[in-house]
Each structure stands twice: as structure tokens, then as C-alpha cells.
Amino acid sequence: MALLEVENLQTHFRTPDGVNRAVDGVSFHVNAGETVAIVGESGCGKSVTSMSILRLIPEPPGKIAGAIRFEGRDLLKLSDREMRDIRGNEISMIFQEPMTSLNPVLTVGRQIGETLRLHQGLSRQQAEEKAVEMLTLVGIPEPRRRVREYPHQLSGGMRQRVMIAIALACNPKLLIADEPTTALDVTIQAQILELMRDLKHRVGAAIVLITHDLGVVAEVAERVIVMYAGKKVEEAAVGPLFNNPKHPYTQGLLGSMPKLGSSLHGDETRLAEIPGLVPSLKAKIPGCVFASRCPHATDLCRQVAPALEEKAPGHVAACHYATKEGAIAA
């Protein structure tokens, strides 16, 4: 049994001008100890998916339907109290903004200790000891001094390390990281990615990584889910997804990214553009969600939504024309 099974997740928001189908029928699973990335552009529903797993969506205006089974228990059926026992304990989360997601008036030690005292009933003293241990684990120098400092005394990279320390304090089985390095500089991003890889080996938690950066995906993920307009359009192991993408959207995304080192080969071709814009999620789209921007779209695509189909072992895509060879039939 998979650690986490998400089945037909639908997270809709009621707005004055219609229902916004932010996530519209997404299914996937995460095995114990595995790193799964969810990629897509702004508004594709990747963050809403992660927030839905922890039930952090305000209801109303939001509404979560489907099933989210964590170790066999459907999280959507738990009481608020039972859910609180899971958050920060068995499933924890790292947010994008290390500046705003820490409490500015509490010391770092208090914030790491909070989950430990709540979930594991440690005393204040024990919690501080454990906080020092956690800061050491995430590679913060002088942890004894730092544990008594406030977030503003730390740099962005160190704050993100503190966030990771908080998230890992209770030894979660699943860690959801929502754009964990997007706000960081590239040399600091490299440090944090290295830390996440290293901790994964040592702690063994499964990771759901939410990101828009395909470079970060290639570096840390084992399996990748590509989302577009609230739907999963492709899923594969990281190698096949980058080397042999099946869905035209994934192909477009990869083609529109300049590759570092392009000048060395002299292949500085014009970047491929994906024309047009992401469709509004408020109108029901009859056919394929990508049809309006797809270079291969036909009438079939505009009328009938393609189902997710296995195009190669372990490689699914929602496209009428993606063949098993990976070529698009004209």
C-alpha cells in the first residue's frame, strides 16, 4: 500500500463569478521514502493540491472532494482534532517564504519546540535540547546560540533551514515542500537542495515537492507529475519525463526553457513559445484543457477530453495523439 493515495481530488472555490475548479480530478500516490515532484505554472493547482492534502483550504469558499488516504485513513473524513494530530507530526510542510512563515516574535528554539511539545509532550527544557539537535542536523553553525535568536537575526537560507528543522522535528513520514527554494539565491538554493537530499537518506521521509522549476525537479525528484489547468496531464519517472516527454504541454515547457551551456554548442536557437494563456478555470472546458494552446490540436481534442493513458510502462499522459513511441501523429 502506498503511503499517500490521492484519488479524484477536486478542490473548488466558490467565487462571485462562478466556481473556480482549481484542482479538478487529480489522482496520484506517493510511496514511503519516495520523492515525487508536482510541476506546473502559476494557477495550475499544484499548491492547492498540497494544501488540500493537509486540509489547509478554508471551507467555505473552498470545497475538497475525493479521497486522500494517508496510510489507509481518509484524511477528508477525520475530525478537526484528529487532523491536528497529523499536521506537523506525521505530515509536515515547508512553505516558500521563509521570511513570512516564521513567527517574528518567538525565538527559533520556541518555534521548533512547539511541535515537539504539542505532539510528543516534551518539557520546555527537553524541547530546547531537541531544537539544538535539529539545528545541528540542518547544518546551522553555533546551534546553541542560534536557538535563542529571532528570525530577523537569520539570513534567508538559515531561515529556510529552520523551517526544515521545524518540519522534520517530529520525524514525519511525509514532507510537503511547496516551492522550498524559489525565494532563495542560487548558491543558497544549491545548499538547501543538497541538505534535502542528504536528510532524505538519513530521515527517510517521503517528499512531495511542489515547484515550477524543472531544473530543481531533475535534481531531486524520482517521479514527476505535470499539472495543467487543474488536471494531471502527465506522470512518469524523472528520466523518461525529461528525455521522452509524451504530452505536448510537457514538451512545450521543456522547449521554452533555455538550457545552461547552450552557448558552448552554439545551438542558441530561438526559444520555443507556448502561444496564448492558461485558460480560465471558471468555465468548463469540453475537450482537452491544453487544446487552445497545443500545436497538434484537432477537432477531437477540442470536443473530447483525453483520458490518462499508459503510453509506456509507468508513463501516463492525457493526450489523444501521444503515441507509445513518443512521437505525435500528425
Binding site: T187, Q189, A190, Q191, E194, V216, A218, E219, F242
Partner: peptide, 20 residues
């Protein structure tokens, strides 16, 4: 170090990594 720190979209690529 900057060049080596940029994540590249080719999984499993062997590259020299310098982490500052």
C-alpha cells in the same frame, strides 16, 4: 560556483558541483 549551482533540467547528469 554560480554555474555549478544552477539546477539543470537533465536528470542524472554528471557534473562538477561546487557548493559554497
Amino acid at each position: 560556483a554560480l554555474l555549478s549551482a544552477v539546477p539543470v533540467p537533465s536528470p542524472g547528469a554528471a557534473r562538477q558541483r561546487i557548493i559554497l
